[in-house]
């Protein structure tokens, strides 16, 4: 079974490339059993969303 270290690495790489079918399968299996890694996966998406917003100039400060 894949370790959390390996699972987080695959999730990170999936933001740069499409994972192989075998990688997807073992990742899915791991995530089914591992809540912390599921959280990590969601956080990666949040991190990307946050970064996009940061690079767009951060929060809009209207009305401050």
């Amino acid at each position: 079974m894949k370790s959390c270290r390996g699972a987080t690495r695959l999730m990170s790489e999936s933001q740069e490339r499409n994972l192989l079918f075998s990688e997807q399968a073992s990742l899915k299996l791991h995530l089914a059993m591992c809540a912390p890694c599921r959280n990590f996966g969601r956080q990666l998406h949040a991190l990307r969303r946050i970064s996009k917003s940061y690079a767009g100039g951060g929060p809009e400060k209207t009305g401050e």
């Binding site: 270290r5 912390p36 890694c37 959280n39 990590f40």
Partner: peptide
């Protein structure tokens, strides 16, 4: 290769509102 106990990622409350 598994998360140490104190290091396990927790659920984040509403990342969307942090942006504002």
């Amino acid at each position: 290769g598994h998360w140490r106990k104190d290091e396990r990622p927790k659920k984040w409350a509403d990342p969307e509102s942090a942006i504002h």
